[in-house]
């Protein structure tokens, strides 16, 4: 993974009327990573994406794409960007191919073979000469992706990329986005409300709420960070086990069951507790730890409100 940021947000602010809806977002996105953009509805995700592609002006701060300021060096900056903003809306009365021709005329150096390659890649070869109005939402999504990748951008921004796709399609897109990031070093930025999706797809996640950045973390760290988890030990003597575990964990954080004991503890504590159990001569048949999903964590962080 290269460490040169492809997208830099520096104290980005947006005011609409007198109301500030984005209060100073700062973070970097690097080539080769899939970056998730997460937040409840109305948190300012789409507004931020619109500012990144130049559809909206910034009220403060700046956004650099490949070192170029999106406001003052718009053409150079945006020529590195491919995007789908919200739904992939295409000209419905044109064919898929005509739509791609349309966008290819707006950038330099997109050949017919490049278009064919993209069509092949998103699996629309059979239907590309049909009108877009006959396409399913999933097909439009694929056409949107082809459109965004035509000019080989180094930054790919996708708003809700798996929206309207069937599970097979979702897996395909996920696989493809990962490949783009890993093999071609593209910075892929996705926003999604499907938290479980983000968990599998993204390397790092930024959470925003009420126009503020709550945190940027790697997906793994994010799920595992700091907080305690429930660990279940399958033991032969529950009462003895309780005594052994109580050296490390307070009583109120333990629950006893039939043939098992559950205790809340940090990850680092698990080996120590296990060692104590063994030293005390208790037979341990199994240890399982309940990992928090991104969803639990997200609800925890954002206060569990307005999540759609």
């Amino acid at each position: 993974m290269s460490r040169k940021p492809l997208v830099e947000l520096q104290d980005v602010r947006k005011k609409i009327g007198r109301k500030e809806i984005i209060h100073g977002l700062s973070f970097n996105i690097y080539g080769g990573e899939v970056f998730g953009f997460l937040g409840p509805n109305g948190a300012g995700k789409t507004t931020t994406i619109r500012m990144m592609v130049g559809l909206m002006k910034l009220s403060g701060g700046k956004i650099l794409i490949n070192g170029k300021n999106i406001q003052t060096e718009y053409k150079q900056a945006v020529s590195n960007v491919g995007a789908i903003v919200e739904n992939p809306e295409m000209y419905k009365f044109l064919t898929g191919y005509q739509n791609l021709i349309h966008y290819s005329r707006m950038v330099k150096g997109v050949s017919k073979s490049r278009i064919a390659e993209m069509v092949e890649l998103v699996g629309l070869t059979d239907r590309i000469h049909e009108k877009v109005k006959t396409y399913s939402l999933g097909m439009r999504q694929r056409l949107g992706l082809a459109q965004a990748l035509l000019h080989s951008p180094s930054v790919l921004i996708l708003d809700e990329p798996t929206n309207g796709l069937d599970p097979a399609g979702i897996r395909e897109i996920r696989h493809y986005l990962r490949e783009l990031a890993e093999k071609e070093g593209i910075a892929v930025i996705v926003s999604s409300h499907l938290l479980s999706e983000m968990e599998i797809m993204c390397d790092r996640i930024a959470i925003i709420q009420h126009g503020k950045l709550i945190g940027v973390q790697s997906t793994k760290e994010f799920v595992e960070s700091g907080s305690t988890r429930k660990v279940r030990f399958l033991v032969d003597e529950v009462a003895a086990a309780r005594h052994a575990v109580s050296h490390h964990v307070k009583d109120e954080r333990m629950t006893l069951g039939n043939g098992y004991i559950e205790a809340e503890m940090e990850r680092d504590l698990i080996p120590e507790v296990t060692a104590t159990l063994v030293v005390e001569g208790i037979k341990v048949y199994g240890i399982s730890s309940e990992t928090k999903t991104l969803e639990d964590k997200f609800l925890e962080v954002t206060g569990g409100k307005e999540v759609v």
Binding site: K75, V85, E89, Q147
Partner: peptide, 14 residues
């Protein structure tokens, strides 16, 4: 009204 303005205005064209 088609929503295509969003894809039209994110090209390297002023």
């Amino acid at each position: 009204s088609w929503g295509t303005i969003k894809l039209l205005l994110i090209r390297p064209v002023s």
